[in-house]
Design a binder for these strands. Structure first.
Length: 333
DNA sequence: GGAATTTGACCTTG
DNA sequence: CAAGGTCAAATTCC
């Protein structure tokens, strides 16, 4: 309920300031990188360093985008917007949003739930995974997770990490996930989800107001919504229209990807209450029509009489063809 | 000091 | 019995 206050201590102004400072720092890094390279005049070294420079540029742009978004929001709204700001945390910063209600009682509730005698208390899952996805970096998915174990497995040199929903104890939410690195270079992490969230996930997506700042991502697609005025906060080529909480959101593609600088997109499909807006690079989509034309690497899943299309597009823009033949897609939030 | 993670023991499953 | 999922005390983090 009043879980927003976690963020209100850090006001909009402060977040904007942080964004700008971060952008300046990164710009300085970029400058030094370029100066260093131009001094050396090393053609081969330049190509090596190009991806890094590109990443820095993306970070600077992200700083601008986030700050502008915050400015835009503060101009258009005058009511408690501080409470509605949910900045995307950097991956380097640890810990979950910890914005669940009665969070201080959580551990206590867990302790009372488990007695000292551990016998018979184990309930090992038997169900098949609900969803599985590989990602090149560790991503947050908008839910608060509590890690409860890690294990070395036979066929991997990496540890498998076990998480359950932070609301398991206070709301009995059964959702769990496992994350395991499956490849070193380039890094690849496999996240396997078990069960669906039953908790009131008020911290991000189902909230009446939420502002999603762009996070480190090679994608320039940027989604956000605000229920107050149904306004459109455009970024790159996509816009969200008519956002209604816990109802379908129409996502209309106004333009197609004729410009490849729009960068990379990857979709990720969760169940329909776990659409990830936090990272633009993975967006779950539900087609309202029965059968959009899709590229070959599109996979279709059926769930609750709905068809889910996982476009799974990647660096090569294969998946973009999906939009070329379909100008309206329904997204469930 | 409280909350989150780590860690090895404990437990289930095949 | 091996593999690996889960628990909770110990440890770390904030």
């Amino acid at each position: 309920m009043e879980n927003h206050h976690h963020y209100s201590s850090k006001g909009r102004r402060e977040i904007m300031e942080q964004e700008l400072l971060r952008g300046r720092d990164v710009a300085n890094q970029l400058l030094q990188l370029l100066v260093h390279r131009s001094n050396n005049n090393d053609e081969q070294g330049l190509t090596l360093i190009l991806p890094f420079a590109e990443d820095l540029v993306h970070q600077v742009l992200r700083s601008f985008t986030n700050t502008l978004l915050l400015l835009n929001i503060s101009n258009n709204s005058n009511n408690n917007i501080d409470d509605a700001i949910f900045p995307i945390k950097d991956l380097s910063s640890s810990s979950s949003p910890s914005s669940c209600q009665k969070h201080e009682n959580l551990d206590e509730a867990c302790k009372s739930f488990h007695t000292n005698n551990r016998r018979g208390r184990y309930k090992r899952k038997t169900t098949a995974p609900t969803w599985e996805k590989d990602n090149p970096i560790l991503l947050e998915d908008g839910h608060a997770w509590r890690k409860y174990g890690q294990k070395k497995t036979m066929n991997s040199k990496y540890l498998r990490n076990y998480y359950r929903c932070s609301h398991k104890c206070d709301e009995g939410c059964p959702a769990m996930k496992q994350v395991q690195r499956i490849q070193e270079n380039p890094p690849l992490y496999r996240t396997t989800y078990y069960g669906h969230h039953t908790c009131k996930n008020t911290n991000y997506y189902n909230n009446e107001e939420s502002i999603i700042l762009e996070h480190e991502s090679k994608s320039s697609m940027f989604l956000s919504f605000n229920n107050n005025n149904n306004n459109i906060i455009p970024s790159s080529k996509k816009q969200i229209l008519r956002s209604t909480k816990q109802e379908a959101v129409e996502l209309v593609i106004h333009d197609h990807h004729d410009d490849h600088s729009v960068a990379t997109h990857q979709s990720q499909l969760y169940d329909h209450y776990e659409v990830d807006l936090e990272y633009s690079r993975h967006v779950a989509m539900l087609s309202s029509s029965s059968s959009p034309s899709c590229t070959d690497d599109t996979t279709v899943h059926q769930f609750d009489n709905n068809y889910y299309y996982d476009f799974g597009w990647d660096l090569d823009f294969d998946g973009m063809a999906c939009f070329d033949h379909q100008d309206q897609i329904t997204m469930i939030i």
